[in-house]
Amino acid sequence: MAVGKVSDATFESEVLKANEPVVVDFWAEWCGPCRMIAPALDEIAGHMDGKVKIVKLNVDENPETAAKYGIMSIPTLMIFKKGELSSRQVGAAPKAKLEQWITAAV
């Protein structure tokens, strides 16, 4: 499954109420490092399908959720399990490192 999109309106139903662990990628169009990790996240979403859901949230369009979680730097990745924030990673990282972090957290 590819990386889906969530918004302020769908964050609760798509992330907090999801059955499986969810990785949220807080990003923006103008953020270079965000664009760099996007292909890696797409691939990870592909081969971890069923174990984890990966979604992205545009901080420009959805300031409410970004503010709620205190995002002051992007990309920031957060893993939610059963509605609870369980792990976070700030800044771009190589694909292997991202995959390791996601695997360890879910």
């Binding site: 205190g70 995002i71 002051m72 730097s73 992007i74 700030v90």
Partner: peptide, 14 residues
């Protein structure tokens, strides 16, 4: 780091 501490103004200045 990432919650008010940054090393990149052009990334996070916004």
């Amino acid at each position: 780091k990432g919650y008010g501490v940054s090393a990149c103004a052009t990334c996070d200045g916004f």
